[in-house]
Amino acid sequence: MLTETISAPFAVSRVPPATYSVPKSKRDENRVAVSQTSIEQTDWANHVLRICTHGDQAAFAELFQHFAPRVKAFLMKSGASPTLAEECTQEVMATLWHKAHMFDPAKASVATWVFTIARNRKVDMLRRQRRPEPEDLPWGPEPEPEQADVLSRQQEAERLAKAIAALPEKQRTLVQDAYFGDLSHREIATRTGLPLGTIKSRLRLALDRLRHEMKGVNE
């Protein structure tokens, strides 16, 4: 593997300020050109690849600029103070560098991967608990990701983002609260005073709709 490259010590130098900007798709709501989608998403997967193969600090700086403020916001919503959230965000981003060789673009988008790393840090930070993970599948990750799978993950992420934005207000708020925060859906019911059944059906409706979109099924 490429772990030698990754863990090799290097001088910490002033990294030029990142000038990265994500190309914004201005297509209509439902139809996104594949090329446009792939430019936006491949980029992050490619950044991770550059970190993995070349220990590329410029690629890391751009990833940091994009994701660190999101991870910090996520950790603060979960109850961390700004200082603690900043400290943990640095650790999350360092983990991203150290585990770059484990990222599988055929399985998940970079945003999803970052989310799972930040989530694990949150469990450790707030609950001071181990987090049991499912057993690895016996056949393991593919050595070379299938390009078709990589592309479909990218399209999925794009569709998903649009679908979340299009959710009815109450469902969208609940989805955000379910992922961002430190309450389970039962605790959300207790906290908001809404019946548990209402919380469940709202969350399920939202997830069904998002799943439907992810699979690219047209109504």
């Binding site: 990294v15 940091f64 700004p82 959230a85 900043e86 945003a111 989530r119 992922y179």
Partner: peptide
């Protein structure tokens, strides 16, 4: 799938700016 939704929520959530020097500290 549910983790992919988490990724999308993270991608489109509000952000909290990191203080100057954070990148260098992370490196």
């Amino acid at each position: 799938e549910i983790e992919a939704v988490g990724g999308a929520v993270l991608e489109h959530c509000e952000t909290a700016s990191m203080p100057a020097g954070s990148l260098e500290a992370t490196l």
